[in-house]
Nucleic acid binder design. Structure first.
Length: 873
RNA sequence: GCGCGGUUAGCUCAGUGGUAGAGCACCUCCUUGACACGGAGGGGGUCACAGGUUCGAACCCUGUAUCGCGCACCA
């Protein structure tokens, strides 16, 4: 009996082999290696993050690529690290501070607060890295980087200085997206548009020069009317042409504001009159610029109204102020009506509150290398997989806007700009303050996190590493950060290294729950991958996910799929266990020197075909397809058929048993190597247990084993292989036919039977012992084409006509069946009559109708079954 | 509004012009010396809908519905 346990227990195996790989330094990339390089940089997870299913998917894919490359003889660098994630991390630490000490970051001051964030990072920042290790990721952990590492930070700031010197970075007072919760500016990409149900308020502004005449003005944001500095109409709008150049009364604070003409106004929308609030709307700001309007900012950075809004509203939160302003308008009789209205409102991605368009002084970047970056993808120099993402990229690149890179946060890379204390218009841009540093103060702001991430593919590498491993080969990431990260890395790569930073970009699926919702913490619909790994093993989780993660489409997560992964690991384990029970591996002579049965030739041929499909699938980044190939070959072709077909020979012993063992070793050995990138731990364990490991140290590991040969049996001509496969398929077809007959005639699986065969001449002389054992027949009696003496259930197969000998009187059985079919038809007729009766159908409750339909279907199924059986008689 | 992608069995999904597939779930049989996390057999589909091209369409074309995503938005 084997000493391998009956059910595979992944926990200990996975831990042991991961430890082994680490202690042998298997993941370390050597820039001095003579092997060709292969590299991937990890999309750095947020240092605050914990592992999600999205990470599992993403990193399993990278691990597959890395492990496959190791097997194919590459020196592999998979470079890991984490991202400081400015807003996210700062928010987490601030929240904790408020909760535990009742303090804000300002209470602590900048230096002390940053000390706390670092403390927090040291304490919790490693969690996701540990989790990635649990998953089996083969990253070169000694090279782990953090976007706030000293040298990396220096590069970020140098980048700023350099782009500033080139005139691409500039400072300006502009309308930006402001998050009132985080109290910082955001880039356009950090704003998500949400369809929001709201109200359209129609207000009445009196024309100053024509008392008693009112303009109706529609707005969704009455709380900003205190900042109105004009009313605008379309220059060609006949309704209002006579008013252009006159004035309207802003109700409160009461002021006379000009009526201007601007082509931006849509005559067809609302009343065709727009209130212009240059401080609180991007389009209004532009109108203000065109007409030289005053800008009145009535809001504080935290989203409350300020003194300019008037004492009545000062200090009021913006949405409360909306209600108050409407009430005030109504009181004054200046509210015409309120309509329901649905429009898109920009929300802060992080804080999930509506962003406030806000005029403020920020740093902007005019992107470098835009045409080249666009061309790199359009021309295919960088390959996007699936290809359709290239269109999204192209669209964004051709409509690209300057990037607001400054953030009013403390956690991040401080902007390397100094202002002279006595004259802040004197600016110094550089890593360090000028020599008389006491006379200068550094810009308070930090840089957008993505301004550091865009350097990741090369900023993480030193000189020798870059020489060997840059540009990287593949990037695996989510399509949700195509603009945030992928596009910007391409531009940075071109600008700072003169090369595109990667060759292929694979965009993963987005994992949703069974209801199609995005996984999120607040919904509580995101299973913890660690729990899943505890239940099903890391390999089970990986393989289960690979089988459902299609080519860049959304995927609905179902735990059952992971269970299948676990079951597959168990199947593999037991197939290996079966082989181990047959004795130690046979290395005495090469496969080709054994006398191979047609079954062996066929299984090896099928293995080679699977191997070819697997290679193609991986080359196309069709991971799902590769996983399916692996699964189907092993479970069906190898276990269900080959192993079962070979049992008799193994029991018989002798040379043919040796041959079967050799074939099993060949298939299992090759198979484990192909499966290893998907299920690294169990394959390493079995490689070792089955005795395939040879040599010393690393050479013993499947991790570094070469893939199997593409042609396992070069000595056998293709026609001969096809012939064997054909004969074997005929036998298996016949086996299936016998099984069907057995099921139809209620011969239990464990009962033996006698089968008669009128053999097709193509297979004359072919040994039938496998047919006999798989059909669980006591004997196969060969008969002539005219069939057996008495009637028996039968079926036609490629191997010939097969007959199942039964201890029954066939004619009596036929009569019995005919009788039964008659009864069933009567039942069907009853049901049909009932369903055809309109008064019944109209009167009966739907459940009753349903049950009748179901009953009808059941009877019909029974009838079909009997008819099939009858046909075999 | 413009663009992209999806719609196939109860569920999750494969399937690029030639007899509709897998796994799970369901029903029947089987604890046979690898595996019940298993084996054998079975039922279940108007391939969203409507047209068109073709000898032949889940697949190609046109339109519609619906879900999702991206972009742009009219206050």
């Amino acid at each position: 009996m084997s000493d391998i346990s009956k059910a595979y227990e992944p926990g200990a195996v996975e831990e042991r082999w991961y430890g082994e790989w680490i202690s042998q330094g298997c993941f370390a990339a050597d820039p001095a290696s003579g092997k060709p390089g292969f590299s991937i940089v990890i999309p750095p997870p947020n240092v605050t993050g914990v592992l999600t299913l999205g990470h599992v998917l993403n990193n399993t894919l990278q691990d597959i690529l890395a492990r496959r490359a190791r097997q194919t003889g590459h020196e592999v660098l998979w470079l890991p690290g984490t991202d400081h994630a400015g807003i996210a991390t700062q928010t987490v630490v601030e929240r904790q501070l408020r909760k535990e000490e009742g303090k804000t970051r300002r209470d602590l001051g900048r230096d002390e607060f940053l000390r706390r964030v670092w403390e927090w990072k040291e304490k919790h920042g490693g969690i996701i890295i540990k989790q990635l290790k649990r998953l089996g990721c083969s990253c070169d952990w000694d090279r782990e980087r953090f976007t706030m590492d000293e040298d990396y930070s220096r590069q970020v700031q140098e980048t700023f200085v350099r782009l500033h010197a080139q005139g691409l970075i500039y400072r300006g007072k502009r309308m930006v997206n402001w998050c009132p919760v985080s109290q910082t500016a955001l880039s356009d990409e950090e704003v998500v548009m949400k369809s929001t149900k709201g109200k359209l308020y129609v207000m009445r502004y009196e024309v100053a020069e024509e008392p008693g005449t009112f303009l109706e003005i529609a707005t969704t944001r009455p709380e900003t009317l205190m900042g109105d500095t004009a009313v605008a109409v379309h220059p060609e709008d006949p309704r209002y042409a006579h008013l252009i150049g006159r004035h309207a009364w802003r109700p409160f604070p009461r002021a006379m504001i000009p009526i201007v003409a601007d082509r931006h106004i849509d005559m067809a929308f609302g009343t065709g009159v727009l209130k212009v609030t240059p401080a609180h709307d991007k389009a209004d700001f532009e109108i203000g610029q065109r007409h030289g309007l005053e800008v009145i900012d009535v809001m504080n950075p935290d989203g409350t109204l300020n003194d300019l809004a008037g004492p009545e509203f000062s200090g009021m939160e913006r949405f409360a102020a909306r209600e108050a302003a409407v009430a005030r308008l109504e009181e004054m009789g200046l509210l015409a009506r309120i309509e329901d209205y649905e429009n898109n409102v920009g929300y802060s991605e992080r804080a999930d509150v509506p962003v406030e368009p806000r005029l403020s002084e920020q740093w902007f970047l005019r992107y470098p290398q835009v045409p080249a970056a666009l061309d790199a993808v359009v021309s295919g120099k960088i390959r996007f997989v699936p290809e359709r993402w290239a269109k999204i990229y192209e669209h964004w690149m051709t409509n690209i806007q300057d990037w607001c890179i400054s953030r009013q946060l403390w956690w991040g890379h401080r902007i390397p700009v100094w202002y002279r204390l006595d004259d802040s218009s004197v600016v110094h841009v550089g890593l360090d303050a000028p020599a008389d540093e006491d006379n200068w103060r550094q810009d308070e702001d930090v840089l957008d996190t993505w301004f550091s991430s865009w350097l990741w593919p090369f900023g993480t590498m030193d000189g020798p590493t870059r020489a060997k491993f840059y540009p990287t080969n593949d990037l695996v990431t989510g399509p949700d950060i195509i603009f945030f990260w992928v596009a910007r890395m391409i531009m940075a790569g071109l600008e700072f290294t003169g090369e595109t930073p990667f060759r292929n970009v694979f965009f993963t699926s987005i994992i949703r729950d069974l209801k199609g919702r995005k996984m999120s913490k607040s919904l509580g619909n995101s299973p913890d991958p660690l729990d899943l790994m505890a239940k099903y093993g890391a390999d089970g989780l990986r393989f289960g996910l690979m089988r459902i993660a299609p080519h860049g489409q959304d995927v609905r997560f179902d735990e059952n799929q992971i269970k299948e992964g676990r079951n597959f690991a168990n199947k593999l384990w037991n197939a290996a266990r079966f082989r181990e029970m047959q004795g130690p591996p046979l290395v005495v002579k090469p496969l080709a020197e054994h006398a191979l049965s047609p079954y062996s030739v066929a299984v090896i041929t099928a293995f080679d075909a699977m191997h070819a499909a697997y290679r193609q699938a991986l080359a196309d980044f069709h991971f799902h397809e590769a996983a399916t190939q692996l699964y189907d070959f092993f479970w069906s072709t190898y276990c269900d058929w080959y192993v079962e077909a070979s049992k008799a020979e193994l029991t018989a012993g002798g040379a043919s048993a040796d041959s079967v063992r050799a074939v099993m070793d060949h298939v299992l050995g090759g198979y484990l190597r192909l499966l290893h990138p998907f299920m690294p731990h169990i394959t390493e364990e079995l490689w070792d247990r089955l005795g395939f490991a040879a040599g010393e140290g690393r050479a013993r590991l499947i991790l570094f084993a070469s893939p199997p040969d593409e042609d396992s049996l070069p000595g056998i001509p293709a026609e001969e292989k096809a012939q064997a496969a054909n004969a074997v398929a005929a036998v298996y077809e016949a086996v299936r036919a016998v099984r069907v007959l057995r099921a139809e005639f209620k011969v239990p699986s464990n009962a033996e039977c006698v089968v008669h065969l009128a053999r097709h001449p193509d297979f004359a002389g072919f040994d039938l012992s496998v047919f006999r054992s798989l059909a669980r027949a006591t004997e196969i009696e060969e008969i002539g084409a005219s069939g057996p003496a008495r009637k028996m259930p039968h079926a036609l197969t490629p191997l010939g006509e097969v007959y199942l000998e039964l201890d029954i009187d066939v004619e009596a059985e036929r009569q019995r069946m005919l009788g039964e079919i008659g009864k069933i038809e009567a039942e069907i007729a009853k049901v049909e009559a009932k369903l055809a009766d309109t008064s019944f159908v109209q009167g009966a409750p739907p459940q009753v109708i349903e049950s009748f339909k179901t009953r009808g279907a059941d009877w019909r199924a029974k009838r079909a079954k009997l008819e099939t059986a009858l046909a075999a008689l």
